[in-house]
């Protein structure tokens, strides 16, 4: 029963969607402010969600119906699971629900894959195009992310346990304090940007090119769930960065404030990048990750070997 509570209430579905919703509002609001606009009200993500829940859900006649309808459910599940696995060690909840870095890495892939599968299942040709871009992008950034991951495992002394990594950082200072840590931060943030499908890597759901791409056929409940998964990922990915590079969260005294600031700072960074760049093409993104980000990551790994 405890697991069910962890999964659905705290730090799972409910907590993650509320927190992620606020972060996504923060992102939208900040975007608006950067563009001299007022921006949406604070509860906007929740309005959107509830509205979409109440709307009609349309399934394309070309779709593989069951898969199309279930894909967003998988997305939410994957996002939630990764959230739980990240936060369980953070909150020091002992038993029952654990996973290591590799598991989290794979679970964080699940929402993206679900979107891709859902888009392909929708039977819309334009979604196909979006899905093809998304999966190419996935191939692109996954390699950089893996390098970063490996570097972190290396820095943590060949352990993959989230708990140990946090503990190590709290004892010996966050990984970002070292030169290799700083270098690792760059590709990792770019991967986060790509995973969140924000500009400059939003080519899969580029509205002005392919009219919504992978989400083109989603409507009503399916769209609501897809949005929910996005909200959760908005919490999960920055938290992941914090856990592996920025010293994790600490929940005592003044550290709560620091942890919150880290989270908000990261979202701020994501939003800034998102608002100061145009979208890249598939080839350019692939080149960006394959050449530049991998280069940085490899240099960081070499530095980490040298103990820097």
């Amino acid at each position: 029963m405890a697991q069910v509570f962890y999964f659905f209430i705290f730090p799972g579905l409910l907590f993650a969607s509320v927190a992620g919703g606020f972060l996504s509002w923060f992102d939208r609001k900040l975007t608006a402010r950067l563009q001299f606009r007022v921006g949406p009200p604070m509860l906007q993500p929740f309005y959107d969600f509830v509205k979409l829940l109440a709307k009609e859900t349309i399934v394309s006649s070309e779709a593989a119906k069951s898969l199309f309808l279930m894909a967003p459910v998988f997305a939410v599940t994957g996002a939630c699971l990764s959230c739980v696995l990240i936060f369980i060690p953070v909150f020091g909840i002992g038993n029952g629900f654990q996973g290591d870095l590799i598991v989290i890495f794979y679970l964080m892939m699940v929402p993206t894959i679900s979107y891709i599968i859902g888009a392909l299942a929708s039977g819309n040709p334009l979604s196909n195009l979006g899905a093809s871009r998304e999966i190419k992008l996935l191939i692109g950034y996954e390699f950089s992310m893996l390098l970063v991951l490996a570097a972190i495992i290396l820095k943590a002394g060949n352990t993959v346990s989230i708990h140990d990594i946090i503990l190590l950082q709290q004892q010996e200072g966050a990984f970002i304090g070292s030169l290799s840590g700083v270098l690792l931060f760059i590709p990792l943030m770019m991967c986060v940007q790509a995973k969140l499908a924000f500009v400059p890597f939003d080519l899969a759901d580029a509205e002005t090119e392919i009219a919504g791409g992978i989400f083109l056929e989603f409507s009503g409940l399916t769209l609501a769930l897809a949005k929910l998964a996005k909200y959760i990922m908005m919490l999960v990915l920055p938290s992941f960065v914090i856990v592996v590079l920025l010293g994790g969260f600490r929940l005592d005294g003044i550290h709560i404030l620091w942890s919150l600031l880290k989270l908000i700072g990261l979202v701020l960074l994501i939003t800034l990048v998102r608002n100061t760049n145009p979208r890249l093409t598939v080839g350019q993104s692939l080149r960006f990750f394959f050449i530049w980000m991998n280069l940085i990551a490899v240099v960081a790994i070499l530095l980490a070997y040298a103990g820097l």
């Binding site: 563009q35 500009v199 608002n275």
Partner: peptide, 9 residues
């Protein structure tokens, strides 16, 4: 069109 909404705004 190139996704640079800030320029748009």
């Amino acid at each position: 069109f190139i996704g640079y909404n800030t320029v748009f705004m």
